Computed example of a mutant assay.
Amino acid sequence: MVEYTLVNLISLVVGIAFLVNGYMLVKQGREAIALFVVSLAIGGGLIFVAVFPNVFQVFATVLGLELKARAILVISNLTLFVVATYLFNRIGKLYDRLSRLNEEVSLLRSEVEELRDE
Rank of each mutant, 00 (worst) to 15 (best):
V2D: 04
E3T: 14
Y4L: 15
T5G: 14
L9F: 09
L9Q: 05
L9M: 05
L9N: 03
S11C: 12
V13S: 10
L19A: 06
N21D: 12
N21V: 14
Y23A: 07
Y23V: 09
L25T: 05
L25K: 07
V26R: 14
K27T: 07
K27N: 10
G29R: 02
R30Y: 15
L35R: 13
F36E: 05
V38W: 06
S39L: 07
A41C: 11
I42D: 02
I42Q: 01
G43E: 00
G45I: 01
V49S: 10
A50M: 02
A50G: 02
V51I: 15
F52G: 04
F52M: 15
N54D: 13
F59R: 00
F59N: 02
A60I: 01
A60P: 03
T61I: 05
V62D: 02
V62C: 02
A69K: 12
A69T: 14
I72R: 08
I72L: 11
I72N: 12
L73D: 08
V74F: 08
I75P: 01
I75Y: 09
L78H: 00
L78R: 00
L78W: 03
T79I: 15
L80C: 10
L80G: 11
F81Q: 04
V83Y: 07
A84D: 05
A84H: 05
N89C: 06
N89R: 08
I91L: 09
G92T: 08
K93E: 15
L94Q: 11
L94S: 08
Y95E: 14
Y95V: 11
S99Q: 14
L101I: 12
L107P: 00
L107A: 09
E111F: 03
E111I: 05
E113H: 06
E113P: 01
E114V: 07
L115A: 08
L115I: 13
R116P: 00
R116G: 06
D117C: 00
E118S: 03
E118L: 08
